[in-house]
Amino acid sequence: MARNVTKNRKLAMTVLAWAIGILIFFPILWTILTSFKTEAEAIASPPSFLFFDWTLDNYREVQERSNYFRHFSNSVIISLGSTILGLAIAIPAAWSMAFVPGRRTKDVLMWMLSTKMLPPVGVLIPIYLIFRDTGLLDTLTGLTIVLMLINLPIIIWMLFTYFREIPGEILEAARMDGAGLKAEIIHVLTPMAVPGIASTLLLNIILAWNEAFWTLNLTAAKAAPLTAFIASYSSPEGLFYAKLSAASTMAIAPILILGWFSQKQLVRGLTFGAVK
């Protein structure tokens, strides 16, 4: 009888969890479905759920009307560029703090984190004016630099927590075997550090892709990534639900896929080791 009870319980939990999961996911699902409808069907009442004439016209139209792929590639360039640049600066820093910690290392780490707590409006005007005067406004270079800087503390912290898990004894063993510093780094440390670096890369691409304060305030037509492009749908003309859905689906699809791979890193990356 006890087994029966647990089985019923498992069934009830399954039904409940699936119902809530689908409810939470529904806005995304609805967006994806609407992107395949015609504009008339998109606002039909009662709405059709699956039985409508599936069409790809919206995707074609979004691209033709607004050169969607330029904004898409802006997003790719900005998020990849800022992450890689950030890694190049953060890897040596996190490395030295993890393997050669000094008396001040903790203070430095905490201070770096505190820069992340700075609300963006606190520096909006100076950054805007500096960008205006140096011609960086509405450029990919400018946005890449800003996104690199706002995510740098997170990158350093994530790498630091990963590097700390590499046991120091391995280094000593390699040294005993006569490995030089260069060989030590290339053959021993790098292979052990790669998974951590990959996770950091993934999470920061996601954060940069979805960043929506600086991308909205520092770009106009030219360098606008998808966050800013989608925002242009806030003052629409005519029927636009299906087109909005198509543009949205393309904007979130790559990150949804990356995001599912990085669930675990999300906790580590955004809680700074405070929850394990």
Partner: peptide, 17 residues
């Protein structure tokens, strides 16, 4: 995966939808 998905939706998309 279903529950976590909204976190990966960019704010402008989520709000406009």
């Amino acid at each position: 995966i279903l529950v976590i998905a909204p976190f990966f939706v960019m704010p402008t998309v989520g709000a406009l939808v």
